[in-house]
């Protein structure tokens, strides 16, 4: 039985790894050059965070698996990322809305992890938080500009908000793994982030002339325990093909 701490670190690491991989799919295909670079840079930050979380997860597990073994040699059911981040990129409104929902949660989560009694967790969180504040600022700005932009951009943004909303429930789950991390003062209670997240998101959506879906809407669940949508399988197929096809390949 893997330790709760290992599971907890995989949830953190896999979530940012998968979102990073999604963002990298835009590289060279952004709507304008500046957006292309901004998304690639955001993805690069998240990849850096994923490397630190997964390296530490491997150390905690103690079976000799490093960041690469964890990223490239696990099957979809072994991934612990939240469903929100594995959803396909869709159009640009979809990508930005997914990012905004995630960034608004990510900064709150990291601000809690900075207080962890585990100095490695606190160190990674402190490093990541500085970068994520930029991500959050950027995605907030773009939600407002596109929501309040043309009729067309407004329509796409509202559709994206409605599409991704049912994937946000998982951000605030608290199961036995989380409980154990809370007791050990390593992790935080995600339920406590729900109210500030809802307030931030509602405020930004209102400024963007977009309608917030009901907070008590039905929500998808399962990513954090390894029950994923098929979108993750395709993503991993592409991300893992080289190390799987050529075991031990060196760059």
């Amino acid at each position: 039985m893997p330790s709760a701490k290992f599971e907890y670190l995989l949830r953190l690491g896999d979530t940012v790894l998968v979102l990073s991989q999604r963002l990298s799919e835009w590289c060279g295909r952004g709507p304008v050059l500046e957006e292309d670079m901004a998304l690639a840079n955001t993805g690069l930050d998240l990849l850096g965070h994923a490397r630190m979380w997964l390296t530490y997860a491997g150390e905690v597990e103690g079976k000799g698996r490093d960041e690469d073994a964890l990223a490239y040699l696990r099957d979809d059911a072994a991934f612990r990322n939240m469903l929100l981040v594995e959803r396909p990129n869709g159009n640009y409104a979809d990508t930005l809305t997914r990012q905004f929902f995630f960034d608004a949660w990510h900064r709150l989560a990291l601000a809690e992890l900075v207080k962890s009694s585990d100095s490695t967790v606190a160190g990674i969180a402190g490093k990541a938080l500085k970068e994520v504040e930029y991500h959050f600022q950027r995605s907030t700005d773009l939600i407002i500009r596109l929501g309040g932009g043309t009729d067309y951009s407004h329509r796409l943004m509202q559709a994206a908000v409605d599409e991704f909303w049912p994937y946000t429930g998982e951000l605030f789950e608290c199961d036995a793994v989380d409980q154990e991390m809370i007791v050990l003062d390593v992790g935080f209670d995600a339920r406590s982030l729900r109210a500030p997240w809802l307030a931030t998101v509602a405020n930004t959506l209102e400024t963007a002339t977009l309608v917030s879906p009901p907070a008590d809407a039905w929500m998808h669940k399962g990513g954090r325990t390894g029950v994923h949508t098929q979108a993750l399988s395709y993503l991993l197929g592409e991300m893992q093909v080289l190390p799987r096809r050529y075991p031990g390949a060196q760059w």
Partner: peptide
């Protein structure tokens, strides 16, 4: 110490 987490 790294500058940015993902600095290549």
């Amino acid at each position: 110490t790294p500058t940015y987490s993902g600095c290549p």
